[in-house]
């Protein structure tokens, strides 16, 4: 390996890395390659990739923000819906209460009217019953008079005195 440095005419006998004759050539082409590479990267490749990454970053940030907005809107809508639902429920309750009160009033009135009618009917019926009873009592008296007269006539023909019989019966009935 020590021969590598001076092995000019036979390079394969040592390390080609130590053949200094090729150094200017390698360095020359390397410098050119570095310059080309640097310009390709700094002018084209890196700005382009950088802008793509930034665009993507912005897009994602925008999308996230939009999603948040939409979520907030959805929450607001849900809140409004719940509020409307509660309002409607309260209104329905109120209407139900009012209707119930109305119906109760109607029922009370109807009951009162019915009671009055019933009372009137009862009074009427009682009057009728009293009259019927009075006429029935009168009939009983008449039947008793007639029967008594007939009986008295049968036992003692011609002795029946309607006036006295009636008086006797009346006193009897009262007794």
């Amino acid at each position: 390996m020590a021969t590598g440095a001076d092995a000019a005419e036979h390079t394969s006998s040592g390390m080609p890395q130590l053949n200094f004759e090729t150094f200017p050539n390698q360095i020359f082409w390397l410098a050119i390659a570095l310059v080309i590479m640097y310009f390709v990267l700094s002018r084209i490749a890196l700005p382009r990739i950088g802008s793509v990454l930034e665009d993507r970053h912005n897009t994602i940030a925008n999308d996230l923000e939009q999603a948040n907005n939409l979520k907030r809107k959805a929450e607001e809508a849900e809140e409004a819906y719940n509020k409307a639902l509660a309002d409607a429920r309260a209104e329905a309750n109120r209407i139900a209460e009012a209707t119930k009160a109305d119906i109760k009033k109607d029922i009370d009135a109807a009951v009162a009217k019915a009671d009055a009618e019933i009372a009137a009917k009862v009074a009427e019926s009682e009057a009728q019953i009293a009259e019927i009873r009075k006429s029935a009592l009168k009939s009983v008296e008449d039947v008793a008079n007639a029967t008594t007269e007939d009986i008295v006539n049968a036992i003692l023909p011609g002795s029946a005195d309607a006036k006295s019989v009636k008086a006797a019966i009346t006193s009897r009935l009262k007794g």
């Binding site: 090729t22 050539n25 360095i27 020359f28 082409w29 050119i32 080309i36 390709v40």
Partner: peptide, 20 residues
């Protein structure tokens, strides 16, 4: 091989640039 001669160094440097 003069300093400007295209060599296999040139070729593979070029290919590395091409790959990049």
């Amino acid at each position: 091989i003069a300093f400007y001669t295209p060599t296999n160094v040139t070729l593979w440097l070029g290919l590395a640039i091409l790959a990049t």
